[in-house]
Amino acid sequence: MYPSRFKYESPNTVEEAIKLLDAGKGEAKILAGGQSLVPMLKLRFAFPEQVVDINNIPGLDYIRFDADGTLHIGALVRHEHLEKSLEISKRQPTIAAAAPLVADPIVRTRGTFVGSVCHADPQGDWAATMIALNGSIIVQGPKGKRTIAMKDFVLGPYANSMNYNEIAIEAVIPAPQGVARGGYLKLERRVGDFATASVAVALDMKGDVVVGAGFALAGVGGKTIDANEAASALLGQKLTEATIAKAAAIVAAKAEPRTDHRGSAEYKRHIVETFVKRILVANSTQKVA
């Protein structure tokens, strides 16, 4: 591959990295897993003056649950770590369901969860997952740290609300009041394909009553789609045929698909509705502790 010429820096601390970004005045780019940045460099869609590789900064690859159940995912946690984590599979079923559907096994060994959220690809799986889980991103800049809620983080396709001199340090996912349930379904043409349509559903359940719910979509709009308002169909209710159908209809209405070579807009909307129903049905028949 023959990208444009760039300077390469590989700092060992977050502070050093921030200094480099700050000095770069918007012309420096962070390299995490490289699975989106490098293809863009190759295609010369991105031509930063400087690439700041954060892979040599120690201590950013943690997956940590607080005592209350809040989940922290460090900036260098790879997709594969999430896929293989027992903790995640037990406690965060939406993430656990999405992880093996992100890209292909090779990409998953390199790409990072946080990098993917930062990249804000409308077809990316993690930004959708984070919106459904009502997560937030902790970013650090020259003036210290701040927390950005997911609903304010993704601004549009490939655009987030960070400043050029900030680094995303970790993703935070709030603890459920009851038990975290949910799922993730993705229609792809082949393993390693981006979503034709993806649906993230996060549920917070007490017994068989829904006390919290989140929905988000990838691949069916110009940006990651926040469909959290569908929670209104479920809150305080059980997952019945009627409540499921209502929620699915609201989510489907939020999709903004376009007709293209992957299918018609109607087809994609239908897939969204079908997938929401499937995830909710699977959770309703699940034995609830």
Binding site: G219, G222, T259, D260, H261, R262
Partner: peptide, 12 residues
């Protein structure tokens, strides 16, 4: 029946 042609619009 579903025909692949005439050509369709390009992707997202």
């Amino acid at each position: 029946d579903v025909y692949g042609m005439p050509p369709v619009r390009s992707g997202n």
